[in-house]
Simulated assay, not measured.
Amino acid sequence: MPPRDLALALLVVVVWGVNFAVIKTGVAEVPPLLLGALRFMLAACPAVFLLRAPKLPLRLYLAYGLSISVGQFAFLFTAIHLGMPSGLASLVLQSQAFFTMLFAALWLKESWRRSQLAGLILAAGGLALIGWSHGASMPLAGFLFTLAAASMWAAGNIVTRAVARHGPINQFAFVVWASLVPPLPFFALSLSIEGPAVIVEALARFSLQSFAAVAYLAWGATLLGYGLWTRLLSRYPANQVAPFSLLIPLVGLTTGWLVFDEALQPLHYAGAALLMLGLAVNLFATRLLAWAKARP
Rank of each mutant, 00 (worst) to 15 (best):
A294E: 10
Q240R: 15
Y216I: 06
E29N: 13
L264T: 05
T25V: 15
A294M: 10
V14D: 04
L250E: 07
I80Q: 10
Q72H: 07
G167K: 05
V198M: 14
A123D: 02
E194T: 11
N239D: 15
Y226A: 05
I80H: 10
G156R: 01
W132N: 13
M152N: 04
W291K: 11
A74W: 00
W219I: 11
S245A: 12
I158C: 07
L264A: 07
S207Y: 06
V48P: 00
M1G: 12
P54G: 04
W291L: 13
L88I: 15
F98Q: 03
F244G: 02
L288G: 00
G26T: 04
V12S: 05
S86M: 08
W229R: 07
N19I: 06
L60F: 03
F211G: 09
V18P: 01
L180D: 06
L117W: 08
T25E: 15
I121T: 10
Q96E: 08
G167S: 03
L122H: 00
C45A: 15
A7R: 04
L267E: 10
S111W: 08
F75K: 08
P185R: 00
A43G: 10
L184Y: 09
R114N: 14
I121G: 00
F174K: 03
V198G: 11
K109Q: 11
A154Y: 01
L93V: 11
L60Q: 04
E262Q: 13
E29F: 11
L10V: 08
K55H: 14
A204C: 11
G71K: 00
V175N: 08
G83W: 05
W132Q: 13
M152T: 01
G71D: 01
V214I: 15
A105N: 04
V14K: 05
L38H: 12
A263K: 14
V30H: 03
P183H: 12
A213P: 03
S179K: 07
P185C: 00
V175C: 06
S151N: 05
L267K: 13
T25C: 14
A238K: 11
H81W: 14
D5T: 02
V200T: 15
F206C: 11
L66D: 02
G271R: 09
L247R: 05
L56I: 07
Q72T: 05
L60T: 02
H268A: 06
L34D: 07
S67E: 01
P2F: 12
L76T: 10
Q240H: 13
L91N: 05
